[in-house]
């Protein structure tokens, strides 16, 4: 016991032990979250960068806004930190909190329309919406009746060279019923 105490009294050992303990605590938290909250291995201090496809960047989050002026796709910037938090750790709680945050925001039509080409070469267009911090063409806020959030992760089956999508959950908000997570 005396040996142990004298060992701990060696100068420099205690500070180093503090450093080691800090890293181990954060590491344990990282693995717990990876196991129970689908935290990406790339995040949370687990040193799992460049170890798996399942990075937050492969997780997509989309918000549709339904209003008196029609349906809008929310800009990615308007999803804010809650959006990036969800893509790093897509739990039902984080989706619910994101849904609540999005429902409390004031949305505006950005005056721009996004058009994509579908696989059959026809076109699909959707007007874009954003929050007050985005540049505004129309200063009148949208009267939002419902929101729908969808999220999925994308993974490539390298042998088949095919891209697979896996749902990470959906949430809907309506003025009458509030937020529901599926």
């Amino acid at each position: 016991m005396q040996k142990l105490i004298s060992c701990c009294q060696r100068p420099g050992l205690m500070p180093l032990a503090l450093l080691v303990i800090s890293t181990v605590i954060i590491l344990a938290h990282h693995f717990y979250r990876v196991q129970h909250s689908d935290l990406s291995r790339w995040k949370g201090g687990g040193m799992g960068m460049f170890s798996t496809q399942d990075a937050p960047g492969t997780r997509t989050l989309a918000l549709m806004i339904h209003s008196d002026q029609g349906s809008f796709l929310a800009s990615q910037d308007s999803l804010g930190r809650a959006g990036t938090r969800f893509t790093a750790m897509p739990t039902a709680d984080n989706l619910h909190s994101l849904c609540v945050q999005m429902a409390t925001k004031t949305w505006y039509a950005l005056g721009s329309v996004r058009t994509v080409t579908l696989n059959d070469q026809s076109l699909r267009s959707l007007p874009m919406a954003g929050t007050a911090s985005d540049s505004l063409a129309n200063p009148r806020p949208l009267q939002v009746s419902a929101l729908s959030l969808t999220s999925w992760k994308t993974r490539i089956d390298v042998a088949q060279r095919q891209i697979e999508r896996r749902s990470l959950g959906e949430a809907r908000w309506s003025r009458a019923e509030g937020c529901d997570v599926f």
């Binding site: 450093l19 890293t23 687990g46 040193m47 798996t52 496809q53 390298v158």
Partner: peptide, 26 residues
């Protein structure tokens, strides 16, 4: 020394545990 060791060994552990690293998929 400790932090460099921690970085390298944990990177190795994560790559070993990941389902799509060692087969070259990643």
């Amino acid at each position: 020394r400790y932090l460099l060791f921690f970085t390298m060994i944990m990177a190795v552990v994560q790559k070993t545990l990941a389902a799509d690293y060692l087969d070259g998929s990643f």
